[in-house]
Design a protein around this nucleic acid. Sequence first.
DNA 1: ATACATGCAAACATTTTGCTTTGGC
DNA 2: GCCAAAGCAAAATGTTTGCATGTAT
Lengths: 160, 160
Amino acid sequence: VTETCKSITPENHLAHCLDRCRQNNLRRTRVLNWLLREMIAAINPLTLTQLQERAEAGGLDCDPATLYRQIMKLEGIGLVRRLGFHQRSNYFKLLLPGQHQDYLICDQCGAVQVIDIECPVHDLEDEVVEKSGFTGVHHELEFFGVCPDCQQAEKSIAAR
Amino acid sequence: VTETCKSITPENHLAHCLDRCRQNNLRRTRVLNWLLREMIAAINPLTLTQLQERAEAGGLDCDPATLYRQIMKLEGIGLVRRLGFHQRSNYFKLLLPGQHQDYLICDQCGAVQVIDIECPVHDLEDEVVEKSGFTGVHHELEFFGVCPDCQQAEKSIAAR
DNA sequence: ATACATGCAAACATTTTGCTTTGGC
DNA sequence: GCCAAAGCAAAATGTTTGCATGTAT
């Protein structure tokens, strides 16, 4: 028996994103198409550099500046969000309806992964809005620490 | 009647920090002294650039690279933590015992402020440790939105 | 005296902009 | 045909390192 009743598929996401883009007068170009597909497929947020690498690997010939401007536009219409982990470059992720992610990042090697926890912060947003007068409030929750691999590496060094 | 029974003063903090530095063989230099005092006095996390500006304004003649290396050392001994907001440069804050801060940041102008909320995330750290095998786990919680000033500015533009 | 800290200069990575050409609508 | 997007080049910004000199221990 195949799974047929899954309502949220990558194609749904793509349609949603393209809709939003059209509403905001973005043209449906080669780069936009590729970028949306790539970001829908990616579980993790990605840096500009990572996106460029993937573009090359995936046979999309695209200038870094173009990728940058495209991402900026998507951020401008609220379809992409910039994430600041503790690294040199920013990460970008597609904002999909009903999706919220929290992250676990290694202080040592910088690896980023999505973690599946019950995020207890949503309730606090109302409180924040009230206290601060901010609008459009959202939050970001990250856990940091040393990943098993880096723990191993540390041990190896210590053993010398 | 003056307040005399406050147990945690800037001076306490300074002593604590200097202790930690000495334990880690950092020398007590002009720059270190200034940096610790400045970061204890600052409520908000600061970028390297902000620190440089403050140094100049405060009459400390110090090379950017020196400030950078000093901060890196403090981060190395776990006395300073790097924070990634959504801006180009990183922020740094002194880690003081028993202190945890959450932040509210304007998506538009980038202003950072500390918010006073009951942070409900500490309990989750155990869960994260269990699930991930990470060690030394800590977390960072940030709220983002548009600050009252920037809302005002948006209105002004719209009114034209 | 020794090793760490500093200043100065330069390399490096990343982000951002200007301007001309291409391509979607 | 018009205006947004892409390509190319270069500037701006922020981070990091090398090396000679100064300074705390």
